[in-house]
Design a protein around this nucleic acid. Structure first.
Length: 290
DNA sequence: ACAATATCCTGCGAGC
DNA sequence: TGCTCGCAGGATATTG
């Protein structure tokens, strides 16, 4: 999954196709993705005949606003992605795409674990190799309340002042702090590495030890990179696809993420990796000093 | 407030 | 060739 640029690409795509459509039924071979309501048959009956009024992005979450004050929340986690098209069940649980452009040969089709069927015959599929994706159906008010409680403001919605205020009080590493969705929403492992590289900040530097100048560089780098990545339809390391099944093109512009052992484009030093909490950070030891 | 660890899953590439 | 190990765009719960 998708971090903010991938989620945004997904939401923008889906909006074009799905707003106004009415859900007829759902299919799944992995009910566990639905965290709420606990009873899956209640989920099915509640979602039936609901119309999609709008689709919004909040951090890395996708929220489908439905009729009757209900909302459907989908978080794609690591390998989930939403596709729009039509599929046919060839054998049990084996869905083959009938849509031009959405190649039936794409192996992501074999990881479809959820399909929403609409009254007009179109479908939205959730492909998710690792089955970590989360689906929640609840009253819109409740969903919004929960999101507001869990998430900080979106990285593209805050000014430098707010950015600084939120980070300068964090005593953890800067990488962890900007990836913490409760501090700022939207940044994950790829874009934190890329933003820190462009701002020339070591991932393990304590957030509250950054100078005003460093914070400013980081803010600017994050804004720039994320906007650029949205234009490129996100990054496809392996799994991510746009709703039409295309790969994100920002992969070409990555400078450090996944590049350990390669040369820094700035100074030719070898890119290194280091553990930051449970994640791996890639950085240039010469350009990004602690 | 923060760190460390396990957990939810499957596939892939490295190294032996 | 085939095995085992570690790792992968995320987040949460638990324990210290």
């Amino acid at each position: 999954m998708p971090e903010l640029p991938e989620v945004k690409t997904t939401v923008n795509g889906l909006k074009k196709y799905l707003v106004g459509k009415t859900i007829k039924k759902v299919w799944t071979d992995w009910e566990k993705m639905v965290k709420k309501p606990a009873d899956f048959s209640y989920f099915k009956s509640t979602i039936k005949d609901k119309k999609i009024k709008d689709i919004i992005q909040r951090g890395k979450n996708i929220v489908f606003l439905l009729s009757n004050d209900y909302s459907l929340l989908i978080h794609q986690k690591l390998t989930g992605h939403l596709l729009y098209g039509k599929w046919k069940e060839k054998e049990k649980g084996n869905w083959v795409s009938q849509t031009k452009g959405l190649m039936s040969s794409d192996k992501m089709n074999s990881y479809i674990h959820f399909i929403f069927f609409f009254k007009d015959g179109h479908q939205m599929a959730l492909s998710d190799l690792r089955k970590f994706a989360k689906i929640v159906l609840a009253k819109t008010k409740e969903i919004k309340k929960d999101l507001d409680k869990e998430l900080g403001p979106g990285i593209l919605e805050i000014d430098f002042k707010e950015f600084k205020k939120r980070l300068e009080q964090k005593r953890t590493s800067i990488k962890k702090a900007i990836m913490d969705q409760g501090v700022i929403a939207g940044i994950g492992n790829i874009y934190s590495d890329e933003a820190l590289f462009r701002a020339r900040i070591h991932p393990l530097k304590k957030a509250n030890n950054l100078t005003e100048k460093e914070l400013k560089r980081l803010y600017n780098a994050a804004q720039k990179i994320l906007k650029q990545a949205i234009k490129y339809n996100g990054t496809s390391v392996s799994d991510y696809r746009t709703p039409k099944g295309k790969k994100g093109e920002f992969s070409k512009l990555l400078k450090v993420y996944g590049k350990d052992g390669e040369r820094c484009p700035q100074c030719s030093s070898l890119i290194e990796k280091v553990k930051v909490g449970s994640r791996t950070a890639r950085f240039c030891p010469k350009c990004q000093k602690k």
